[in-house]
Structures are given as structure tokens and as C-alpha cells.
Write a protein that binds this DNA or RNA. Structure first.
Lengths: 198, 198
DNA sequence: ACTATTTTTGAACGATCACTCAAATGTGAA
DNA sequence: TTCACATTTGAGTGATCGTTCAAAAATAGT
């Protein structure tokens, strides 16, 4: 029927994600993408439509990865707060990881693209909102299970946790000492556990 | 002797700062700068040497502004912790300000330029470190004055405060509700005050 | 082998990029 | 008025930007 695609679509998207995550939107050129994906411009445009299209797909791919990461931490612990605290504490070794960037890609996008690429910025904002909603849902579950006191506000706690993580990841990008980042992440994990009622 | 400069140097630098703060480094072109500063490319290169030179000057100009802002809050309050808490609380109305960007310019630079412009990223990192050092010095002063307990760690608290502010400012860039940002800033101010010994 | 369909290839487009430089312009001392 | 000099002007540099598209290549059913 038709010619086969040169590469697996997931790996292609993964490489685009790594590139955009590392360099950001504006600093990444189509030529960069062509060499990283080992694909001609025509192939890329056939699949994604535009540079912005590649970026949007990469951003959603990134967000899906973070969602899975959170779910894994939640499943690995018996209570909601323990799971969230473990997730928070997992940023302890942020500087030692060999990820494309220390900072979160959604975060980087939201700050980089606010003035210049409003549509893409909106995509990033909505993905961050979805992540915050996951936190909020978990806090709500903790509340209904009695782990969190009855007067606590899950929506506020969701926003708070997201802001805390954003702070640590941005601080880590400054990269003076990995040790300090570890202290900050441990401190956050402790504060999450300290929310426990009684 | 010589021809006068077309504009006051401070205002020129201020306009460059606003532009880079808003759009970031890569998304701002020399043409953008030329029209914003109402100056030909030759004039800009004569003063700053390169686009990176303009950016570096703008970044340092921005950092100086933030330093003054902090000092003002400290002078306006009787104790160190009250001053720092007021500074933290001042981000309450972050979304209502008409600044070039909600997020901090040093923060944006540190994440945007990590992979592509290492020298400029280092400049931004060092300016952030200098800001953190200001926090640390104030916490140390609070400790020596007995406002902070003897077992507290000023260096950790400095890092912590900077990370907290980074978190709130990045969260605010997502811009879903100004009210939530206010709650987060108030919460941080409260936590700073709660550090008070006894 | 032929055909229909999908994908890749890569040269080429106009626009814009950061940057240069010789000439013009303004300035104050002599 | 003249002159030395700092500053501005703006056309022009080659390189790279995002994007297009016609032609070539690869596949699977007939």
C-alpha cells in the first residue's frame, strides 16, 4: 500500500521532546530538528504541520511522562500523603539526573512563550493546570479518607504543591550545589507529610 | 568635543531591559531593539558590542532594581523578619502589576539560556546567587539579633526563600487566578514570620 | 510487472537574523 | 571658523530562519 515510516513515531517524538526541553522553542531551529530526527523538512511538515506543531506534540508528550511519573509514586505508597511526599522528595537528586534539562519543560514554556507565542503558551498553561488538578484530586482524596483534616483546602494545597516544585526546579537550574537542592526537596517532602491530621 | 548621545543612557537601558524581560533573549531581535530604543544598529553596537552585551547590561540593570526593591522593604520595617515577610507578601498582587513580565528576568534567563548561551546563563546564575546572599545575610542578622533561634541555618533559609519566591512567580505566569497567587504569597509571608523564635 | 498510495528527499523561496562600516552629523574647544 | 572627535545613520554583508513542493523511493494489493 504505502511506504513505511523511517522511524518509530514514539522515538521520533521523544527526540523532539528532548531537544525542545533542553533548548526551548525559539533557540531550536528546524535544522536542529532535522538532524536530531534524521528526517527531511518535508517529512516533519507532513507529520506535524509546522514547527509549532512539533512543539505542541512534544509538550504533550512531556506532560504525559510527568503524569505517569506521579502515578507511579502514588501507587508505590499506601497513603495519598506518603505518595505525594515521595513524589516531592524525588526531586532530591534533580541535579544528578541526566535529563535534557533540570527545569520542567511546561514551566520553561510558560515563561518563554508568554509574549511571543500566545497559543503555545496557552497549551503549556493548560497542561500545567491539568497537573495541578491531579495534585488537587489527590489532596481531595486524602481529605475524604480522613488523612487530611476536614478544614483543609485541597485546591489551595494543589496550587501550593505545584508552586513549591516549580521553585525547587528553577532553583536547581541555577546549579550552585546539588546538596542544597536535596535539602529543599527533603524539606518539602517533610512539609507534605506534616499536613497529616492529628 | 563630541556629538551628544541621542538619549539618556539609563532610559535606553531601561527600555532594553523591558524588552528582554518580556520576550527573552532568543525571541528579541536586533531590529526589535533598534525600534524600541530608536537607535540604529551602529549606535547599539558602539555602546554594547553585541546583542549579548546589551542583554548582559539589561540583566544587571534588572538585578540592581530588585536589590533596591528588597532594601526598601527592609528599611520600612523594624525587624528583619518583618521586612523579609513584607517583601515576600509584596508578590501578592503580582498579576495586577503592569511589569514587562510576571516572572523574574533572572529566573527566565537561567532556564532559557542554560543549553544555548552558557556565558549569559552564568551571568544570570551569579546575579541570582547574589540575591540569595542578600537573603542569607538578612537571616544571619536576624539570628545574631536573636529574632531567629540559635540553631537556625541562615544559608539554608536564604536558599529556601529564593526557591519559594521563584515558585510563586513561575506559578503566577500560568495566570489562572490572581486570587490564588495572592493566597500563596500571603502563605509564604506567614511562614517567614513564623520563623520567629519563642 | 503494474498501479495506487504513502513517505522521503532536498533544492529552493523570501524573510529575517546578527552584525559591519564608511559616510554624515553634531559638538565644544581653539 | 576651523578642527578633532564622539556619535548616528542606514545600506549592505553572508548566514540562517521557517516553509514549500515537485520528484524519487518504497510498499502492498492486483
Amino acid at each position: 500500500m504505502a511506504r513505511k515510516e523511517k522511524y518509530d513515531s514514539d522515538e521520533t517524538l521523544g527526540r523532539a521532546t528532548a531537544l525542545f526541553w533542553m533548548q526551548g522553542y525559539h533557540a531550536t531551529s528546524m535544522k536542529d530538528l532535522e538532524t536530531a530526527l534524521d528526517l527531511g523538512p518535508g517529512s516533519i511538515y507532513a507529520r506535524f504541520g509546522s514547527k509549532a506543531g512539533v512543539f505542541e506534540a512534544a509538550l504533550k508528550n512531556y506532560a504525559a511522562g510527568r503524569r505517569i511519573e506521579l502515578e507511579r509514586h502514588l501507587e508505590a505508597h499506601d497513603t495519598v500523603l506518603d505518595g505525594l511526599a515521595a513524589y516531592a522528595g524525588s526531586f532530591r537528586n534533580l541535579c544528578e539526573r541526566d535529563a535534557p534539562s533540570v527545569a520542567c519543560m511546561m514551566m520553561k514554556s510558560v515563561t518563554e512563550l508568554h509574549a511571543t507565542e500566545p497559543e503555545l503558551q496557552t497549551v503549556a498553561s493548560e497542561l500545567l493546570d491539568a497537573t495541578e488538578d491531579m495534585f488537587t484530586e489527590q489532596f481531595a482524596r486524602a481529605k475524604s479518607e480522613g488523612e487530611l483534616s476536614a478544614d483543609s483546602d485541597p485546591a489551595f494545597l494543589g496550587a501550593w504543591l505545584q508552586a513549591e516544585i516549580m521553585g525547587i526546579r528553577t532553583y536547581a537550574q541555577k546549579a550552585n550545589t546539588a546538596e542544597r537542592v536535596g535539602q529543599l526537596a527533603d524539606g518539602l517532602a517533610t512539609r507534605v507529610r506534616a499536613l497529616r491530621a492529628g
